[in-house]
Simulated assay, not measured.
Amino acid sequence: MMMDDVTLANNITVAEQRSVVCMIGTLRAVDLTYQNLIEKVIQPLNADLMFCVSRMTSEDETTINKFRSCNIVDICIYEEAGDGYQDFLHGFFNQLTPEKRTEWHKYFDIEGNWLGGIKGRRGSGFHLNFNYWKLLDRLRFKNIGSEYQRFVITRTDLFWMVEHPPLNLLDSNLIWIPTGENYNGYNDRHAVCSTQNVYDYLSLLEFMLNFKALEYIYNNLDENNLNHERHLKSHLDYCGVEVATFKNVAYLTGDKQTLTNWAPVKTKYVDRVEYAYKYQEELLSSLENMAQFAIHKSWNKMIFEGDRRSN
């Protein structure tokens, strides 16, 4: 194509791109967040909705029904979580040669929450990798991936103080994440991907299963310790994917009944308003950025594409 034709094609792609919000993990805090998620994320992005979550209770289907006003294109509630995903790993190990089993155990030699959820490790790193892998499989199996150009990968216990940044402001060549909560890696709470990079974002476990992760993972250790945020960064760096950020305007919430793998839910009064939160810095930064947004009335000064910041 001539240059003008390329430009026109890109403009058409931007104008007509379809988006889907992908809820992963478990259905936490939905009673507190569902209306907020609809009003601040799903509706402003004119997005369809899909769920790829592991079962928490027998009421999960009823919980999802709270989003009945949205266009739900797929629901996958899987039970493979089992006993710390040991059933899944047991089946995988049975297919390996003795040499490959020895090679796989190089992962277990690395301490840290990046494998949280298996072998008694604290945290949810392996849970999250498994969630990504299940979503990737679902996008392939249902051929959902071919229907959309943008994928908003998020969780149900995020409470948004400001409407999600418009996708036309977020370069589709980059993966977009909120600022903060990076722990020397990349914030793994929320991501905006595109057809160009959604596979890269979701393939952490796939790269472990095919042993490609051994090519880069040992280069990102901190005294033989690895967290999920650094694992995510090392993986995307290896894949050659650039990451940009927008100012965080959401925080993890819950109540006393909300199950958690790491931080418990706490409460705090800020300007005489009580907030239920899991991470104080995340809450305070979202409040600060909400105030900044109220001044600018625009996302243009709250996104950081040029310097690809992750802090």
Rank of each mutant, 00 (worst) to 15 (best):
I77S: 04
T13M: 15
E229R: 12
V6F: 14
L170E: 08
H164S: 09
R68Y: 08
V192P: 01
I118M: 02
C70E: 06
L205M: 09
K233L: 13
F108H: 02
L128G: 04
F93K: 06
S124C: 13
Y186T: 03
W104C: 05
G82M: 07
Y148K: 03
P264D: 08
T245F: 09
T245V: 08
V53W: 06
N227V: 02
L128T: 11
N227K: 03
S286Y: 09
V198H: 11
I72Y: 00
K40Y: 02
E274A: 05
R138H: 09
N224P: 04
S286D: 12
R101Q: 12
C239M: 14
H105P: 01
F141T: 15
H190S: 11
W133H: 12
Y277G: 04
F51V: 06
H228R: 06
E181K: 14
L252P: 03
R18K: 13
D5A: 15
D48F: 01
L287I: 13
N225F: 14
D87E: 14
K266T: 11
H164G: 04
K142H: 10
G120Q: 00
N300F: 05
F304I: 02
A244E: 01
N227L: 05
Y186F: 12
T62V: 14
G306R: 13
L252I: 14
F92S: 01
V21E: 01
L226N: 00
H190T: 09
E61P: 00
D200T: 04
S69H: 03
Y279I: 15
R189P: 06
A263K: 15
N210W: 09
K212N: 10
P98F: 00
D307C: 05
K297L: 05
R230G: 00
S310V: 12
L221K: 05
E80I: 10
Q95S: 09
L37D: 03
N113R: 06
D271P: 03
P98H: 01
C52G: 01
F151Y: 08
I75P: 01
N131S: 14
W104P: 00
V198L: 13
Y251N: 12
N311H: 11
G120I: 01
Q149T: 08
L169T: 01
